[in-house]
Design a protein around this nucleic acid. Structure first.
Lengths: 362, 362
DNA sequence: TGACCTTGCAGAAACGTACCTGTCAACGGG
DNA sequence: CCCGTTGACAGGTACGTTTCTGCAAGGTCA
């Protein structure tokens, strides 16, 4: 009977809703919504008045209600591969941190926020969050997460060229083959005769492409491949593998390490075997870390440009979400950057004897 | 007129809703909801049947609708300080990555996901995501973000003891004063006569507490403070500051660096000045990075145990969200760990002669 | 003076779920 | 035979928005 009378239970428990604002401003809900969202045909006076009342009441629109109504949540998934229970690994620290940082910035700049999600197919977490789209880092072939997302009609952009026929919306990657070939040529130019590789045992695209490129290069120049593979997610295995590589009878005189910590691991191993860098051993590793600028000697690194990748991935994803007909291609190759430092600099002639340490000679 | 007749437009565009499942299973919406959520009093047969139909239709409950109804989103904010446009900095890389990793794992294990948010007061992003609570990393005094969140009635747990009277629900931190004092004593024990500090110019709690502790220690032992401060968010400034510190007329014979890259920076600076570590200069820095295990020489580091902090913070937050009367205190101090390596090991006899290493003497 | 458009706003229908409040049958006990 | 109880479900409302549709009031033009 007195249904039309109920006074909204006096603004209910806590937060003010749009109804409260409407009542306080003496207008309708529609008017409040339009005023706050800059829509509709309202005179500026009304708009200002509503905004002022909303501010006074401390009104914050309910994200859940808005999402339910509009179908857009403003959330982007950032899916990272997991090893065991842990998302991303030691070996990916700097890369991931840089990439995530750039992605976060780019998303924020366009009004989106990032949700970190594991690549495991734990439904309960995935289905508990309303995503507008997802960034997948280095998806494995036939990734169940990606398939599920695509099935739901969500745009998926991949960091790393998708293996197989994974139906992603777009992807961004480096040209890993070209990068490896470039490094090998660089090392050969610096005088390397036998170049070794420190690689991983996992089957992700990065490891696979890089290793394949190395093997092809070896075949082309007629060098026997010299490499050690180890489980890259194990923080200790790298040092052991580096040691093993330098302990081989066919010890390489130059090494490229695919993972971030390989530089220090190889440097330590070289010291154990009394090898001087770069005189006896040329060194390059793939890393985003700044420490290699100040090691003794500084180590040449390959940067995969995670900032640019993180930014590009997010831009592509948001373009897809918003239906923007981007003029960017949906497959972007970001160039890598070889930062040449002492560890791979043309060594002094093989035959000459050089003093073990001469700080003046810098 | 045929209003009661409308057949739900034939399962609408795309996704199946709970209504579609109910229709397909020949039961009511309530029954579907109860069956899937394990509530109500339903015979197992019905429960199974509903679940099966839901699976067949590929039904995924709408996160937005559930959030709107229940008031819980399953999302936790991870708020990071921003410097300019970028969230977190170079100097915090390893710490943040470890911390975020542990936090992500812990949240996931309890069915929550993490949203990365900037500490800027950009309302539009904050209000667009429905959070159940927030982790704030090292909030500054009078942080507007924290105040706003608390005003909304959301639990806020802080990584880092909140400055001033910031009304957080709980916090987790190291005992930074104790850590610094421990390191200074450790260096003094190793023979240091004048210990320098490499610190930051920012006003965050970590920097402030650590610097204060250093100054107090100096006063206590009667040493003149020798320190250089630099803007820690600038990736290049550290090297310059390290150089400046070692170029001083009152050059210290031991240095503690508050930030992660200080180790390599100080090592490089020491080399430039022909100082041997640890013989001429003892070195310790605060870092989570593994590279310091394999530098030449290996550098003693202080670990703030970001894994434990990340886990603890999330546990406290979720306990608060779920109203669990946790037996954990709401103010937790996580012990730091000093990983002693060569760079701070008792140098060759200055006055007393003691064996460089005596593992028996424990 | 209508016919017609514009302005300024209100009503009400979704969005998809969770849960409170029935309803109806079966059943057991007095 | 009646009444209370319990099991198994259905109806309907509310969550807080956005937005489509509608409707007066006022102005313009033929």
């Amino acid at each position: 009977m007195s249904r039309a009378e109920t006074p909204r239970r006096g603004s209910r428990s806590g937060r003010a809703g749009i109804r409260d604002v409407a009542a306080a401003a003496g207008v309708s809900i529609t008017t409040v919504s339009d005023a706050l969202n800059g829509k509709g045909r309202l005179p500026d006076a009304t708009r200002r008045h509503v905004r002022e009342v909303a501010d006074r009441l401390g009104y914050r629109p309910s994200a859940a209600a808005r999402t339910l109504r509009t179908g857009k949540s403003g959330l982007i998934g950032l899916t990272v591969t997991t090893y065991g229970d842990e998302p991303f690994t030691f070996t990916e620290f700097a890369y991931f941190a840089e990439m995530a940082r750039a992605a976060t910035s780019a998303a924020l700049a366009r009004g989106y926020a990032l949700v970190i999600l594991p690549a495991t197919s734990r439904h309960d977490v995935w289905s508990n969050v309303a995503l507008d789209g997802t960034v997948v880092i280095d998806p494995s072939d036939q990734d169940p997460v990606v398939s599920e997302l695509v099935r739901q009609g969500l745009p998926v952009v991949s960091d790393g060229r998708p293996a197989g026929a994974l139906p992603v919306t777009a992807w961004v990657d480096n040209d890993h083959e070209a990068a490896v070939l470039g490094i090998l040529d660089h090392l050969a130019d610096a005088g390397a005769r036998r170049i070794g590789l420190l690689t991983g045992t996992s089957t992700d695209t990065y490891t696979h492409l890089s290793t394949t490129a190395y093997l092809r290069w070896c075949e082309r120049v007629g060098q026997d491949p010299v490499y050690e593979a180890y489980p890259a997610h194990d923080p200790c295995a790298g040092a052991v593998a580096a040691d093993r590589l330098l302990a081989r009878p066919d010890r390489p005189d130059a090494v490229y390490g695919l993972f971030d910590p390989n530089g220090t691991d190889l440097l330590a191993a070289a010291r154990r075997y009394g090898l001087r860098v770069p005189d006896d051993l040329l060194l390059v590793c793939c890393s985003e870390s700044a420490v290699y600028a100040t090691t003794e000697p500084p180590i040449t690194t390959l940067s995969l440009k995670p900032r640019r990748i993180g930014t590009a991935v997010v831009q592509l994803l948001i373009d897809a979400i918003e239906g923007v007909e981007s003029d960017q291609p949906v497959e972007q190759v970001i160039p890598t950057e070889l930062i040449v430092r002492t560890s791979s600099e043309r060594r002094s002639p093989r035959t000459t004897v050089s003093p073990p340490r001469s700080p003046e000679e810098g």
